[in-house]
Simulated assay, not measured.
Amino acid sequence: MRISELSRRSGVSVATIKYYIREDLLPAGRPTATNQAEYDELHLRRLRLIRALIGVRGLSVNTTRTVLHALLEHTSEQHQLLGLALGAIRLTDESEDDTAEVTEVDILIQKMGWEVHESAPARAVLADTLASLRDLGAPLDSKTLLPYAKLAGRMAVLDLNQLEGVTDPFDLAERAVLLTVLLEPALLALRRLAQEHESAQRYRAG
C-alpha cells in the first residue's frame, strides 16, 4: 500500500508517519520509485502499536523506540519478552533506595516465593512508594501488602494465560506490550470502579 493508504487505514497523518520513520520507530517502506515506497500489513500493525504506546499510554518517543527495538529483537521466548517490556519502561523516576522499605519488599517477595530479578524496576517503585507512605504517616509493611501480592499473583496468571498458543513472533511481541504496558490503566480503572461499589455497599445511607 502507498503511504496515503497507510495513513487512511491507521488514522495517522502522513507527516507523523514520516516522523516515526525518521525517529526509527517505524521501518521504511520498500522503495518502488523516486520518493515512493510500498508498505504492508506489518507496517500498519506496528503503527497502531506505536499509537497505543505514545497516545494511549503516554510514553515518550525515546522510550517507545526502546520498547519496540527490545521486543522485536527478542521474539523467541515469552519470559524474555515480558522482562524486556518491563525493563524498558521506568514506572517512575528513579530515586534513592530506602533500606527499610527495600527490606520489606525483599521480605514480601520471599513470602510469595516469587522469582524476581534484583534489578527489576518494580522493586524500586514499590520501595519508594512504601517510603512515601511512611513519610505521610501511613506506613505499610510486608504483612499488610501480602493479600495485595496474592491478588497480583492471580492477575499474573490471567496475564500469562493470554500468551499461551501465540506462535507468531510479532503477535507475541505485541501481546507482551499489551499485557505489560497498555493494560495497566484498565486495571487501575477496574480497581476504582470496585472501590466505588464497595463504598456504596458499606456506607450508603439506608
Rank of each mutant, 00 (worst) to 15 (best):
E115A: 10
E164P: 04
G55M: 10
L82S: 10
E101M: 04
E164D: 13
K150A: 05
D93P: 07
L53Q: 08
A138C: 05
I109S: 07
L126F: 10
S132D: 09
P169S: 08
G137E: 08
E96C: 02
E115Q: 09
N161L: 04
L179D: 06
Q78T: 15
E115M: 00
T63R: 09
V67G: 02
V56C: 01
I89P: 09
S132W: 01
L84K: 11
A124L: 06
G83P: 03
R65C: 06
L151D: 01
R123V: 13
L86K: 13
K111I: 12
A85Q: 10
D168L: 00
R134T: 14
H69V: 09
A120Q: 13
L59F: 11
D98R: 08
L160D: 09
H69K: 03
A120H: 15
D159G: 03
K150Y: 00
R123G: 15
T129R: 01
A85H: 05
A124T: 02
H74N: 15
T64N: 13
D135W: 02
T75E: 05
I54D: 06
T66N: 02
L146Q: 12
S60T: 15
R154V: 07
L126K: 12
S60R: 11
S95C: 12
R154W: 04
D93C: 10
R65Y: 04
M155F: 14
R134D: 09
T64S: 12
D128W: 14
R65K: 07
A131S: 12
W114Q: 13
D97W: 04
L59I: 09
L182N: 15
A131V: 05
S142N: 04
L140N: 04
A85T: 13
L183I: 11
V177E: 01
T167F: 02
L71K: 15
L160P: 01
E96R: 06
L59E: 08
P121F: 10
T99E: 11
D135T: 15
L158K: 02
R90M: 11
A173Y: 07
G153L: 00
A138G: 00
L91E: 13
R90S: 12
K143N: 01
M155E: 13
L91Q: 14
Y148F: 13
R90Q: 12
D97V: 14
V166G: 02
G87M: 09
A100R: 06
G137Q: 08
V67K: 03
G55I: 05
G113H: 09
V157K: 01
V67F: 05
Q80G: 00
T99F: 00
S132K: 15
